[in-house]
């Protein structure tokens, strides 16, 4: 597998991280090296092996449907970059 510069730009866009040409070049070199290491995985035949998402076979516990949280907007919004009338503000979203 070979990574290309356009791959780097595509994933940076997906990840919402601005990347300039020089950084993209640098990332390409480093990520290519890392993917060489990762490629070792392909040597093993894993047919029939069940994927493991969690470190042990655990089961989801369920919460009772009870309201436990109270209004903490003042506290939470005191650390927000920009708020107005209780709303978080962002540049105008155009649909």
């Amino acid at each position: 597998m070979t990574l290309s510069l356009s791959d780097i730009k595509r994933i940076a866009k997906l990840a919402h991280i601005e990347i300039n040409e020089a950084d993209a070049q640098q990332s390409l070199i480093q990520l290519s090296g890392i993917f060489n290491l990762i490629e070792q995985m392909q040597a093993v035949d894993t047919q029939g092996v069940k994927p493991m998402s969690h470190s042990r076979d655990m089961v989801q516990r369920l919460r009772e449907d009870i309201v436990t949280e109270s209004d903490q907007r003042m506290r939470f919004q005191s650390i927000a970059p920009q708020v107005e009338d209780g709303y978080y503000l962002v540049p105008k979203v155009i649909e």
Partner: peptide, 28 residues
């Protein structure tokens, strides 16, 4: 339901903005 699917905040309609957005809902 009374509370949210993954948090204990209320789902009642029409509350003041962000008054029913708990730590889990605002993704602290």
């Amino acid at each position: 339901t009374r509370s949210k699917i993954f948090s204990g905040a209320s789902v009642a309609y029409g509350a003041p903005p962000n008054s029913q957005a708990c730590a889990v809902d605002i993704a602290l």
